[in-house]
Every structure is written in C-alpha cells, then in structure tokens.
Simulated scan of single mutants.
Amino acid sequence: MTQLIFHHYPSSPFAEKIRAIFGFKGLRWTSVHIPMIMPKPDVIALTGGYRKTPLLQIGADIYCDSALIADVLERLAPTPTLYPAESAGMARIVAQWADSTLFWTAIPYTLQPAAFQHSLSGMTPEQLKAFMADRAAFRGNAPIMQVPESTGALRLYLEQFEAQLADGRPWLLGKATSIADFSVYHSLWFVRRVPPVAGILEPYRHVLAWMERVQALGNGTSEKMESGEAIALAAASKPSSTEGEAFLDLHGIARGERVTVAATDYGVDPVEGELVLSRPNEIAIRRVDPRAGEVVVHFPRIGFRLQRQG
C-alpha cells in the first residue's frame, strides 16, 4: 500500500484522532515527530506556511487538517468505513461540530491553571513560557472560553453523550463506528490524560466504556522516520497528477492561477501557490520549495479561504 507518512506529536488531540483511525482501519504508517511550537522548519518546507498538526504526506502530496486526512484514508482503505450509509451525513456534521465547538470547550478546560503544568509535564519553565507565547500567536484574535463556561458546557455535552449511549448502542450514532466517534473521542482523550481535571468524566460510565472501545482499536502499526528523510522523500517524488480532474469553480479563479489558502479560525498563516485542484470537499495548490522540491498541498474546503494572490 501507499506509504503513509504522518507528521505529529504524541500529545496532539487531532493527531490522536488520526492515530485511532489508523487502528480502526488496521493501517501501517510511518511516524515523523514534529515540534509542538514554532519554529517548525521541516513542516514549513512541506506546507509553505501551514503550521497546524497533524499532516499526512504521501510522496510529494501533503494533506492538511484531520478532516481531509480522514477522507484520504477512507479513499485509500474504504473498509471498514468511517462513513456508514445509515449515518454518513449526520456523522460528518457531528464530526465538524466536535472538531470545532467541542475541541474549543475541552482545551480551555484542560489547560486551566490547576492542570496546566501537569498537561505539559516535562517542560521547563522557559519551555512553558514559550508554549504560551506560541499558542497566543497561533490563536490570534479567536475567542477562548473562560474556565467556568468551558466546565459547564463540557458537563452538558457529557450528559448528552451519556444519554445517547445509554440505550446500549456501541457507538455514538448506532451499531456502526463512524467519523463522529473519532472526532468526539480525541477531545475527551485530551481531558482524560490530565489527572487534575479528568474527574469530570467519572460520572459518565457509558461515555467511559465507549472511550475504552475506541482506545481498544489501537493505533495501527507504525515505524519511525526523521523529518529530514521525509523532506528528501518529497524531493525525490512527483505529486499525483490532477490532469483531467473536474474543476469546481466557486471563486472565479481558474486552474493554474496564483492563489493563497488560509485557515479561517486560527493558525491563519497563508500558503501561496498555483491552484491545481478544486473538488467539492478539497482544494490543492502546487508550490516549489528549495528543500522539498515540487509539492502539492491539499486542504479541506470547509474551514479554509481561497483568494487570488495579490
């Protein structure tokens, strides 16, 4: 099968989402650990400026955002499916909500002062200070919940999940595992790994049992690679061809024009390149890097803004 090079770090919630999907699909993957904070020179060589975690690299094709990565893995390994027929549409909607609203509820709750140092254990005071400065710049002007609000909201969501699972269903949307399970799981996984705040989960026995089922899927089989090797592999590869692909024009921008693509929520650093792909759920640009060579960087359509350069 195609070599799946996954750029991540162990404590990243969105990376845990994809690691769990690797386990669900029984996939073999190559692990490249990246820094938690800037500078990330090897990441930027591949993406041109996008700095969120994780990334999936297949040769000289770089896939950004866990929602798109999940779609790519589904395309490459359709069985077992992340999108069962009876719940595919709802599963995607729940996943999008979980990756945004639930995530930004769990993060301020988990990183509250009482738990902050524990959640980032192993860091020196200087590293903690650098982490906070990096995340402030990364978040930009995006609003963040205060601890009382995030605590209250998270409890309400947990009560709703508990009620959903109380009828004996094994997965959030019924008998079949779906993308909704992995998208909800990763934020709760982040909470559960920090003992000072993990107690919020304890009253919800059905939620905890469901989390155990997701965890039991494992993380697939992985082998390690250094980031420099991944860049060399990209430089020695050619991006997959987009010739003959249908082109969905929603912006009045033609294939081949110079554009920028940027996230619309946080980590909004723009990536410049030549527009080569526009699908209903995906856009991609071609760029050339002195180290990585010619690469095509792929983004999901939802959550990203495409603009003509200049």
Rank of each mutant, 00 (worst) to 15 (best):
L154S: 08
R51S: 13
S240K: 11
T124E: 07
G244C: 08
D181L: 10
P113C: 05
K238D: 06
K224L: 08
R193I: 08
R155I: 11
R193S: 09
E212P: 12
D167E: 12
R279Q: 04
V191A: 13
I34E: 08
S119P: 06
S121F: 15
K238C: 06
R192E: 11
W104R: 05
H33C: 03
K175T: 03
A95H: 00
A85Y: 14
R279F: 10
A254P: 02
G199T: 03
L250M: 11
Q112M: 14
V184Y: 02
L120T: 12
A130L: 13
C64Y: 02
R19A: 03
A176S: 15
W210F: 10
G168C: 12
A166F: 09
R291A: 14
S66H: 03
G218S: 05
A88I: 00
G293M: 03
A45Q: 07
V72K: 02
R213W: 03
D134L: 10
L217G: 08
T110H: 08
P148F: 13
I179W: 11
I93T: 14
S183R: 09
L208N: 12
S237E: 01
I18W: 11
R255I: 00
A254H: 08
A114I: 07
P300R: 07
V72R: 01
R291M: 13
E257D: 06
V194A: 13
L208E: 07
D181H: 11
E202A: 15
Y204R: 00
I285L: 14
R155V: 08
F116Q: 02
L201T: 12
T105I: 11
Q160G: 08
T2Y: 14
L165D: 01
A133N: 08
R255Q: 06
P108R: 01
D42C: 14
Q309L: 15
A153E: 11
L173P: 01
A60N: 03
E126M: 13
A133G: 10
D71I: 01
E16K: 15
L156N: 06
D269L: 09
T242H: 09
P113V: 02
R286E: 04
R75S: 15
L173Y: 04
V214Q: 04
G152Q: 04
I44H: 04
P300F: 09
S11G: 12
S150L: 07
M211W: 09
T101V: 15
L173K: 01
D61C: 10
E243H: 09
L68T: 00
R308M: 04
H206L: 13
Q146P: 14
I283C: 08
P300T: 05
L250Y: 12
E257A: 13
I34Y: 10
D289Y: 12
A262P: 05
Y109K: 11
V276P: 01
R75T: 07
Y9M: 11
D99G: 02
T260Y: 07
R291I: 00
R28L: 14
L201V: 09
D249F: 11
Y83S: 14
E149Y: 10
D269W: 12
D265M: 04
G244R: 12
A234E: 05
G49K: 01
F299Y: 03
A70I: 08
L4I: 01
R258P: 09
R19G: 00
I37P: 11
A45P: 02
F24M: 10
L233I: 15
D61R: 10
T124P: 01
V32G: 01
V43F: 07
D269K: 06
